[in-house]
């Protein structure tokens, strides 16, 4: 896949949360069509990295560079990053009472397409994507994440991704809290979204999602750094042996 263009590139990203450095120099290149996975134990900085990349005001990128399709994104507020083609599926999506899934998605898609855009296809698009994710049609008129189960929230995150169709999707612990059926549905949605022009970065603690969404590269994150990279076999090794051997091999501890 080396002939493909670089879609998303991180150069020596450092992130601080409340004056504490939690990501200590992460570099990564995702080419169009690739799926990368960042695996690491709790507290290794992987969620901080994805939040910071999306522009969460609580996560400050103190140094480094990030490019999406060659454009630097770090000066952009979150909505511009989104409209530029970046997407973050949240680990804990928030409820927005009174705002229906359909109205929210229509507003978001309109923000992407521009105020004058034709939205006449929206209803059909939403219906199709919901069906593909086995989301009951009634969810279109339910309030966003309000009273949703953990699994329903994750499905609706993937629904948002499918509708907005970003270039680069960061999926933060999308597998957590899912039973096996939901995991299969959500993975199906991710695979359906994935194509030769977009990229995916899966951030996960466990290997099980990777049984369904095959990564091209697996990176191990420890102490705020990517300490080891490899192919899918690395994920299996982590599943079998945990993270201790990486800690021993690299002399690093998991926690930042």
């Amino acid at each position: 896949m080396s002939h493909r263009t670089t879609l998303f590139e991180l150069k020596d990203i450092h992130v601080e949360v409340e004056d504490k450095e939690v990501v200590k120099g992460v570099s990564l290149k995702v080419k169009a069509g690739e799926v990368h996975a960042i695996m690491g134990p709790n507290g290794s900085g992987k969620s901080s990295l994805s939040n910071a990349l999306m522009g969460h005001p609580g996560y400050e990128i103190t140094s480094g560079e990030a490019y999406l399709q060659g454009h630097s994104i770090l000066e952009m507020p979150p909505d511009e990053r989104s409209r530029a083609g970046l997407f973050l599926a949240f680990q804990y999506p928030l409820a927005v009472p009174g705002v229906t899934v359909a109205n929210f998605l229509r507003a978001a898609l309109k923000a992407h397409r521009g105020p004058e855009a034709d939205m006449s296809d929206f209803r059909r698009l939403l219906k199709r994507e919901m069906a593909a994710l086995s989301i009951d049609p009634s969810f279109a008129t339910r309030y966003l994440n309000d009273g949703f189960s953990g699994g329903e929230k994750k499905r609706v995150e993937i629904l948002q991704m499918s509708v907005l169709n970003p270039k680069m999707a960061l999926l933060d612990e999308t597998d957590s809290g899912l039973d096996i059926d939901a995991l299969k549905t959500v993975s199906g949605g991710i695979n359906r979204f994935h194509n030769a022009d977009n990229g995916i970065l899966l951030v996960t603690h466990y290997q099980r999602l990777l049984n369904y969404v095959q990564p091209d590269f697996v990176h191990v994150m420890l102490g705020g750094r990517l300490v080891k990279s490899g192919g899918p076999e690395l994920a299996l090794k982590l599943e079998e042996n945990g993270y201790d051997w990486v800690e021993q091999e690299t002399g690093l501890t998991a926690e930042v």
């Binding site: 999306m54 522009g55 969460h56 005001p57 507020p77 979150p78 909505d79 990053r81 989104s82 409209r83 997407f87 973050l88 949240f90 999506p93 928030l94 927005v96 929210f104 507003a107 978001a108 923000a111 992407h112 948002q160 907005l164």
Partner: peptide, 10 residues
């Protein structure tokens, strides 16, 4: 942040 991350302005 959640809503702006989907492209809506603040």
């Amino acid at each position: 942040f959640y809503l702006t991350s989907r492209g809506l302005s603040e």
